[in-house]
Design a protein around this nucleic acid. Structure first.
Lengths: 149, 149
DNA sequence: TTGTAATAGTTGTTTTTGTAACTAACAAGC
DNA sequence: GCTTGTTAGTTACAAAAACAACTATTACAA
């Protein structure tokens, strides 16, 4: 790419942000309308749904989310009975989080929605491109340590 | 992709968000440290640098940014003498925005940084993948009307 | 005209987020 | 046992974003 060609519309972080924002909008509307959840909250929910019992730190490490975000998300999820918190007996600093039945139900529902949504999003791409795109995105994220945004 | 396989780490909006956040961090640090700018502000700066004189509405349409974001970004950019605002004589509602010399300088600098940064980010990809990735991201963004986030 | 609607942009208020400081519990060395 | 350092998670305060209501100006039609 020559000097003259480079501009905003070719700048990867910009493109990623635009695509991320655009592609998140409709899904956001669903978890918000249906369960009154915020972005941080469905992320925590999904992690618990996917990996089972986890601590806040573990979620933070996997999702690259700052601990204060998680703390607040868990608080709200617990208030609304999506999540239960139980102290670890051996180390009383740590708290194990798991989904309640209600949390499981919400997860199952949203998981399905997400799967369909993802299908729609990538419908235009061929199967190869779809795989390649996701691989590249993972690689990009991995390129960076853990900037706890 | 079978039902059982689908999870968070394959969910496109999630992957996009992760990649966007991760890849934006270092660049964000630069425009913040060097010019005290926010994300909305460098975006406005880049639009003016790239397209020349524009109105706030035009920027909003292109960048898919809500008008209140732009209004406040322009306010700060004008205070710091990066941008000048001049009323349109024919239609006194509209304001034409352009970069000052200082704004041009900041744009030139950040443009260069962005170009290099983009190069680093995509260094791992082959030239074909690089083009394909950006094409797909543009297509994804275009898939959605204009949700004025 | 004059009344209604539309558009450009701003301002006020409420949510969310970011950052840093904090408490509580544990660990390890002395 | 104590002191020092580390880790898990929370809380308080400041910055930023979202949302809605607002002013000013133009367009358009009865």
């Amino acid at each position: 790419m020559s000097d003259a060609d480079f501009d905003l519309t070719q700048f990867l972080p910009y493109l990623l942000n635009q695509a991320a924002e655009a592609s998140s909008l409709e899904f956001q509307k669903i978890y918000k309308d249906r369960y009154g959840m915020l972005r941080t909250e469905w992320r925590v929910l999904f992690h618990l749904g996917l990996y089972g019992r986890m601590t806040a730190s573990e979620i933070g490490a996997r999702a690259n989310m700052h601990k204060t975000k998680i703390s607040r998300a868990v608080q709200r999820l617990a208030e609304r009975r999506f999540v239960t918190r139980t102290r670890d007996d051996a180390d009383r600093r740590v708290e194990h989080l798991s989904l309640t039945a209600q949390g499981q139900a919400a997860y199952a529902d949203l998981h399905q929605v997400a799967q369909r949504y993802d299908g729609d999003l990538t419908a235009g791409l061929g199967p190869d491109d779809r795989v390649a795109l996701k691989k590249m995105l993972v690689a990009l994220s991995a390129k960076f340590p853990a900037g706890f945004t």
